[in-house]
Design a protein around this nucleic acid. Structure first.
Lengths: 199, 199
DNA sequence: CTAAATACTGTATATAATTACAGTATGAAT
DNA sequence: ATTCATACTGTAATTATATACAGTATTTAG
């Protein structure tokens, strides 16, 4: 239903390319010229198909009145995480914000930090940390861990089959020592960046 | 010559807004309608002025053929500041990076922090701080100060006609106490945000 | 003091662009 | 078997749009 045919995907990609390169969407004629159509109506038909499938919006009577419906260059910002729900579940998404290339790693989402357990490495209450969920978690990096539905940000300092140590970067807090065989432990990702709004 | 008049800035901002909201630039008529012009030629004149000043490009014979010249939505990143040169002088600009809306205040530039004098407020060596240069500097905010050509980031804790106290947020450093009548002191801006890349 | 730049109104026109209608041909779905 | 979606050609008309030319008034720079 909302899957594009190969040809439609080519058209859609061309529209995206045009917007990215020129700063505005193509006309029917420009599409036709690029693909070698001899009639602008070929492009018109494709646009109608793309609209029907929800990939673009068309403003009637408007030149270049094409807008992309699914401009997925935004990244979810996760606020409080409901117990048991996946990190990126809709209920956890506070809002979506534009992809900010602040890190040398890919960013899957931002997570709003609660509490002061990481102030010694400069992560404060209410900061946003950029999270990459695919990086292999490594010792001495800051990880996002889920311990029995509880999401926490800590430095991973030891990891083996029967012992994981998560360190709070604040002398008022104790290390968290876990036996992953006994406790439900998941790594949600690695912290690859930080954003703070000082208001 | 490359500074816009207030009116031209309004036009330019409207074009940016349109592109951001609709996904394509406005026509002369749409500009005229928004500003209440009775002739599309008023918009035409403004576009020509914007082009002349290098803020937009116009493709002749092309509907909505307005594209923003790149330099505008990027913000300079200031690395090391040469003694005596204005903050935004070309020689200080490490590179330009896309405007990242990380702060509730406007951002004029990013400044790469050197040293650990502000670690107690979570500003670390090599972090980028977002700087607003127009906010009135206030007590208990983090300011960018220039003391005799030396640029420093500190918390302003006292300010009067003959005494200014700048506090390093690190117990290993002493406060900087200055008599602004005797020492050349300038406030370059206020820290309104922070970006860190954890690699 | 004068020319140029700014900020418009008002009219007009060529052309850029949308978009409907009428077809043809092929493959997939009911 | 026949309708529907896909993927086009070909023509044409209305309207959307760019843009030139002729003005006026005010402000700014040399």
């Amino acid at each position: 239903m909302n899957t594009l045919t190969n040809r439609q995907k080519e058209i859609f990609d061309f529209i995206k390319l045009k917007i990215s390169n020129e700063g505005y969407p193509p006309t029917r004629m420009e599409i036709s010229e690029f693909f070698g159509f001899k009639s602008p109506n070929a492009a018109e038909d494709h646009l109608k198909a793309l609209k029907k499938k929800g990939f673009i919006d068309i403003l009637s009577g408007t030149s270049r009145g094409i807008s992309l419906s699914v401009h997925d260059d935004s990244i979810p910002l996760i606020g409080l995480v409901s117990a048991g729900s996946p990190m990126l579940a809709e209920e956890n998404v506070e809002k979506r914000i534009p992809a900010l290339p602040i890190s040398s790693h890919g960013i899957d989402y931002y997570l709003r930090v609660k509490g002061d357990s990481m102030i010694d490495v400069g992560i404060f209450d209410n900061d946003l940390i950029a999270v990459n969920k695919d990086l292999k978690v490594k010792k001495n990096t800051i990880v996002i861990a889920r311990i029995d539905d509880d999401v926490t940000v800590k430095t991973l300092i030891e990891i083996s089959n029967n012992k994981v140590v998560l360190k709070a970067e604040n002398k008022d807090y104790d290390d968290i020592v876990i036996n992953p065989k006994k406790v439900n432990l998941n790594f949600e990702g690695t912290c690859v960046g930080l954003i703070r709004n000082i208001s």
